[in-house]
Design a protein around this nucleic acid. Structure first.
Lengths: 205, 205
DNA sequence: GTCTATAGGCAGATAGAC
DNA sequence: GTCTATCTGCCTATAGAC
C-alpha cells in the first residue's frame, strides 16, 4: 500500500490499471483474476494478496475511477477559469464531452456505464459506488448549467437537474452504441448536437 | 420446432422467454444454462437439445427480439396511419419512445443495449445480429424523421441519419442510467425532452 | 510479496438410457 | 424430448512454503 519508490509503479496500481481496462472492455462479469494475472505475469495468488476478493477489487476500481474523474472536472474548472474563457459554461461542457470521447478512443466503455449495465449482478458496495459516480457528475454538470443560464451563455428548458441527467445519459448511450461500430464519430456527433442544443447562439433553428 | 398444439407454449419458446429476461436483467455473461433450467424446472441437458450451445441460444434470442421489435414498429406505422393522426411523425416518435419505457418498467435493459455493452465478448454471429438491430431501428427512424421534416411537423438540424442515431443512443443511455436508480421517470424525462426538441411548435425556446 | 498447490464449485457441453 | 451421469475446464479463494 505504501509508496515503493523503486521507480516502477507499485503492483496494486498495475493490477488496478489492467483490471480497469478489462472491465471497461469486457465488463465485470467478463474478466477473471487469471486474465489480470497473465497480463502482469504474476500469479492469481499474488492478486489475492492485494485484493482479497473480486468484489474488493471492483470497489477499488470504482473509487479510483471516480476520484480521477473528479480531478479531471476540477482541472476543467481551473483551466477554463485560468484561460479567462468567456463564457465559461459552454467551454466546460465541451471539455466534459471530450472526456467521454477520449475514453471511447481507446475502445473502452465508461467504467461506470459498463457497470450500470451489469448493475443487478454487482456486489452491493459496488452498486453504491456506481450511483455515487453518476451523482457526482450530475452535481458538477448542474453547477455548470446554472452558471451558463445565469450569464446567458446556455439556454435550456426545464430544470438544470433534468438537463444534467440528459447530458450524462446521452453521452453514455452514444458511447454504448458507438463502440460496437468502432466509430468514435458517432459519439462525437451526439456530443456536438447536445452542445449545439444548449448554447444560446445556436438554439434557434 | 414444430407447433405442439398441446395448449402450453412449446419448450423452445419458454426457454427463449426465460433466457431473454435473464440477459436483459443480468447480461449474457451474467446468466447460465443452470439459471434457465431451474427457472423452467427442466435440466440443462434438455436445454442443450433445443439450443446446442449458449452462442446458438444467444443468436436466437436476438433474432426473435429484432423480429418482435420490427413488428412493433410496423404496428406503430399501421396504428398511427389508421387513426388518421396528423401529423403522423411526432406520434410515431412518441410511440417509439414508449417501447423503451415499457421495457424499463419491467426492470430490464433493452436486449441489444445490454449486448452492446458486452459486445467484445460475444460470439461473432451475435455481434452481427446486434448491429443489425440498431441498423433496423436507425432506418425506421430515418423514415419517420424524413416524413416529419417534409410535412413540417418535425424540425432538426443536420441529417436524418445523425438525428436517428441520436434518438437511439439517447434512449439507450437513459435506460442504462435510469435502471440502477430504479427510476423510470428518468427515462421518461429524457424521452420527453428528446421529443420536445424535435417537434416544430416547441422548437423555439 | 510472491510463489506452488489445491480446494470446492460452477461453467458449458456430451453420452446414452428411457 | 427429457432424463441421469459425467467430463473437462475455468472460476474465486485459501494454505502454507519461500
Amino acid at each position: 500500500m505504501a509508496a515503493g519508490g523503486t521507480g516502477s509503479a507499485d503492483t496494486a496500481s498495475r493490477i488496478l490499471d489492467a483490471a480497469e481496462r478489462l472491465v471497461q472492455v469486457r465488463g465485470f462479469n467478463g474478466f477473471s483474476y487469471a486474465d489480470v494475472a497473465s497480463e502482469l505475469t504474476i500469479t492469481k495468488a499474488a492478486l489475492h494478496y492485494h485484493f482479497a476478493s473480486k468484489a474488493d477489487l471492483g470497489a477499488a476500481l470504482i473509487t479510483r475511477y471516480a476520484e480521477r474523474f473528479s480531478q479531471a472536472l476540477a482541472e476543467v474548472d481551473a483551466a477554463t477559469d485560468a484561460a479567462g474563457t468567456v463564457p465559461a459554461a459552454p467551454a466546460k461542457l465541451a471539455a466534459y464531452a471530450r472526456l467521454y470521447v477520449e475514453v471511447l478512443r481507446s475502445s473502452r466503455m465508461c467504467l461506470c456505464g459498463m457497470l450500470a449495465a451489469e448493475y443487478p449482478t454487482l456486489p452491493e458496495p459496488m452498486q453504491v459506488a456506481v450511483l455515487g459516480f453518476f451523482d457526482d457528475n450530475e452535481k458538477w454538470l448542474q453547477g455548470v448549467l446554472e452558471q451558463g443560464r445565469t450569464d446567458g451563455s446556455l439556454r435550456f428548458a426545464g430544470s438544470s437537474l433534468d438537463t444534467a441527467r440528459v447530458i450524462i445519459s446521452s453521452l453514455e448511450g452514444a458511447m454504448l452504441v458507438a463502440r460496437p461500430y468502432a466509430d468514435v464519430s458517432r459519439l462525437q456527433a451526439a456530443a456536438d448536437r447536445m452542445l449545439a442544443g444548449l448554447i444560446s447562439t445556436s438554439n434557434t433553428v
